[in-house]
């Protein structure tokens, strides 16, 4: 399986799209497939402080539940409200419309602790 080149990935199966001081985060297609039909996402609140690799939300499928782990530290500036009524976006478009939150990045260096697309592909193969 291949993953978008412009993203960084955590071992907990989250992705980050860094854009200067802000970043968009979500879960990978691998994570979405493993969970199966996703039925609910517990989103963080705007203003919430995320800490890299710490839990910040929950994602539920029909038969499983998993914590969301922040791929980097920062403050939540926006959440994807569409997920509240259309959690299936996480299955159908995890790297696009299924994004979870936008974050004001606290420390850009943290990206170095994440994998690139090839590294993540190896991890999940």
């Amino acid at each position: 399986m291949t993953y978008p080149d412009d993203l960084r990935y955590s071992k907990d199966h989250e992705w980050v799209r860094a854009d200067g001081s802000t970043a968009t985060i979500g879960i990978t297609s691998f994570a979405a497939d493993e969970l199966g039909d996703i039925v609910f996402v517990e989103l963080p609140e705007v203003g919430a402080a995320l800490k890299q690799f710490a839990a910040f939300g929950v994602v539920e499928s029909v038969k499983a539940v998993s914590d969301l782990f922040a791929p980097l530290s920062g403050t939540v500036s926006e959440v994807n409200a569409r997920l509240q009524t259309e959690p299936e976006l996480l299955n159908s478009d995890p790297f696009g419309d299924g994004w979870i939150a936008k974050v004001d990045v606290a420390d850009g260096d943290e990206l170095k602790a994440l994998l690139d697309a090839d590294g993540y592909a190896k991890l999940t193969s």
Binding site: F40, E60, V62, K63, A64, V65
Partner: peptide, 12 residues
């Protein structure tokens, strides 16, 4: 909404 329940969420 079974993800609330013990057989899936166990200690949570």
């Amino acid at each position: 909404l079974q993800a609330r329940e013990q057989h899936i969420r166990r200690e949570k």
